[in-house]
């Protein structure tokens, strides 16, 4: 398990760096696809099979096709080269490393709390045994349509608003 985690984590980080430093926009998009596939593998190691499938279908499928389509349509020819010694790149990189170190340090503190049994000791309502018995999708769907019904309906409303907004923004304006 930790071997799969290490491999997928390495691919995810390298692909994320690729998104930021790639000179051509299309290479950024391809690196983002690699990052999302690695994240889907990580979701599988976290027993989230349904979300791994959704990640592949929605992100690596629909969203990235939309990105690639827009890149092909606009074909921004200008290549942007990041100079590693430029002040904003340097400051940004240092801030990113500092943020990661702080969060990792805090999480390690949390593990000592966990060792005392206060965090992991209590089993929630969805222990792996129960999820195995009822199935991943059934359990998730039951939660989605009972406890989280309002956020679910609001998200469908949001999708409708986004579709209307996209049509409004991309309509052809009359030359006035």
């Amino acid at each position: 398990m930790s071997v799969i985690f290490g491999l997928a984590a390495a691919v995810a980080v390298v692909a994320a760096l690729g998104v930021v430093v790639a000179q051509r926009t299309l290479y950024s998009a391809l690196a983002l696809v690699a990052n999302m596939v690695a994240l889907a593998v990580l979701f599988l190691t976290l027993d989230a099979q349904f979300l791994a499938a959704v990640q592949i279908i929605v992100y690596a499928g629909a969203v990235m096709v939309l990105f690639v389509f827009i890149i092909a349509l606009l074909s921004p020819g200008a290549q942007e080269r990041l100079h590693p010694l430029e002040a904003r790149v340097l400051i940004g990189g240092l801030a990113a490393v500092a943020f990661t170190v702080v969060v990792a340090r805090l999480t390690l503190n949390g593990v000592s709390v966990a060792a005392s049994g206060r965090f992991y000791g209590r089993l929630g309502p969805f222990a792996p045994v129960l999820v195995d018995r009822h199935g991943q999708v059934q359990t998730l769907g039951e939660q989605l349509f009972t406890t989280f019904l309002l956020p679910f309906e609001l998200s469908s409303l949001l999708l409708l608003v986004a579709a209307v907004g996209a049509v409004y923004l991309s309509r052809r304006r009359r030359a006035s």
């Binding site: 985690f5 930021v20 942007e80 790149v89 990792a104």
Partner: peptide, 28 residues
Amino acid sequence: LFPGFIGLSAALFAIGAVGVLVRRNPIV
């Protein structure tokens, strides 16, 4: 492995934030 997952998540978030601040192409 739990700190590994959270640390990886923080690293990916930080890389993304740096990209938002540093890159100039709106698609990127």
